[in-house]
């Protein structure tokens, strides 16, 4: 079983559009939407939820007013400034270390379970999708990504599916790292802008730091052919496979508004390029396998 991730560094470059298209083109696969705090892949796949599970994040401290003697020890040791002057815990700032509960001389601090989101297994028109919804202003998105990935892998093994497609989050932080563990190949989707180039370089370094092999792809490439050229040479110099370019194409947006992905709706220039790119990516994933 192989795992393919789609990442970008910069947001809004086309990760989900590409993941949706790959979901349509790959024959036998399971999809995992790992952008858990702004999940969008389900909008392209009309999912029917089969399973729904609670996700519990770190426990949160709760101070029992009737027992608390206002001695101030908890406020003194809390490094997250989560305990106010009136000994009420700010749930958003509390990171669940439980230091306060351990130090409280009156045992007035209780650590309470915290439901920080939900995750789902859904049937879609292109196969199974594991996705999630992080609760409002909750943390631990990295841990939720690991839960989603774990389930996708388990389903793939159980059903004899040989590919998991991971739609990753933007950035280079905790949820991105959780999206990159055990990945066989990562597609970095970028756009020909100085910001896109700057951010792609950082996420590529991050992926390489974790020994993940990457390929680079330029979306909306005709917006600035000069920077697209720079990206090609950057890929060459850094020994990264250049997977291709996708032209700016209004059909991508039109398809999205219809709740579809661009390879489903016809033969626009972008759809043609994405099909070619998928072939290249497929070859790369199974590179060296017999």
């Amino acid at each position: 079983m192989k795992q393919l991730a789609i990442i970008s560094g910069k947001g809004g470059t086309g990760k989900t559009t590409l993941a949706g298209a790959f979901a349509c083109l790959a024959k036998n696969k399971i999809m995992a939407d790992c952008d858990v705090d702004a999940a969008d892949l389900h909008l392209l796949l009309s999912p029917k939820i089969l399973e729904e599970h609670d996700f519990f994040g770190m426990e949160k401290a709760f101070i029992k007013k009737d027992i608390c003697i206002s001695c101030g020890k908890c406020r003194e040791i809390c490094r997250f400034n989560a305990i106010g002057k009136t000994y009420i815990v700010d749930k958003i700032s509390c990171e669940g270390c439980a230091f306060c509960a351990k130090i409280c001389p009156e045992k007035a601090v209780e650590m309470k379970k915290n439901q920080a989101g939900k995750w789902f297994v859904s049937e879609t028109k292109f196969g199974l999708l594991v996705h999630a919804k992080l609760g409002i202003a909750e943390e631990n998105s990295g841990k939720l990504v690991s839960v989603v990935r774990g389930k996708a892998k388990e389903l793939a093994q159980e059903k004899g599916v040989d590919l998991v497609i991971v739609d990753g989050p933007p950035g280079i932080g905790c949820p991105v790292m959780a999206s990159l563990s055990e990945i066989d190949f990562a597609v970095v989707v970028t756009e020909p802008t100085f910001s896109g180039l700057h951010d792609a370089k950082r996420v590529i370094s991050a992926a390489r730091h974790f020994k993940v092999e990457v390929g680079l792809l330029v979306n909306k490439s005709d917006l600035n052919p000069e920077i697209t050229g720079k990206m090609k040479s950057y890929a060459e110099e850094s020994n990264i496979s250049f997977l291709g370019e996708i032209p700016f194409d209004k059909d991508v947006i039109n398809a999205l508004i219809a709740g579809k992905n661009v390879v489903e709706t016809g033969n626009s220039p972008a759809a043609g390029r994405i099909r070619e790119i998928w072939k290249t990516v497929k070859d790369r994933i199974y590179d060296g396998d017999t």
């Binding site: 858990v36 202003a137 909750e138 943390e139 989050p169």
Partner: peptide, 10 residues
């Protein structure tokens, strides 16, 4: 701010 709705954005 960073994109998203989780801890860095908050």
């Amino acid at each position: 701010a960073p994109p998203g709705t989780s801890c860095p954005m908050v």
